[in-house]
Amino acid sequence: MTAVIISDNRVGNWSRTLREAVLHTGTHVVRFTVNKLDIRPCTACSSCSGKTYGRCVIQDDMQKVLPKIAACRALVLISPVIFGGVSHHIKKVMDRMCALGDPRYYMNNGELVKGMSGQTMNYYMVGVGDKLSEAERSAFFALHKENRIIMNVEGSAFILDSRTDNVSIEAIAKEIAHV
């Protein structure tokens, strides 16, 4: 199985540390550092759900990232916690992922939901930040929960700070690797 790790380089060494821990479980890892890539914002053109179904028409580095996400079993986004959410670099990737979404509507727990296009991946958000307020932490977990509902996927969110130890990282890596 392949895990795709997408990180903002403002998270320090956490991206490399987590990558090594996931590799250690025998999982193949593809890692992208978004700040180094040319990824433009989604323009809400709707082409990916119509004219060019499943394909984003913006020709930039996201064309290298989307095939990897489409084929992965675990997607891991690593971001500094910013205003209770992810950084704009990570958010650009999330916004552009609509090309991989299923445009049809489904029902889950009595509510309308969407889903990923024929894909069974798990979805993880890893937030990094010291001295976060309870409001910031709960907003970060709430965003992940809503993402899980709308994408109809499983997975967890984690928050790392300078006190996070290797044991916790190994546990997160095992969960990502489904072992």
Binding site: G50, T52, G54, A70, P103, R104, Y105, L112, S117
Partner: peptide, 29 residues
């Protein structure tokens, strides 16, 4: 909700058909 879901999906399918796409095909990538 069930009616919404069916109605909205039929709109989506109509649009995909217009552009010659199979909604069940694996993703383009």
């Amino acid at each position: 909700t069930r009616i919404f879901s069916k109605f909205l999906t039929s709109m989506v399918l109509k649009n995909l058909k217009k552009h010659g796409h199979d909604p069940n095909a694996p993703n383009w990538y």
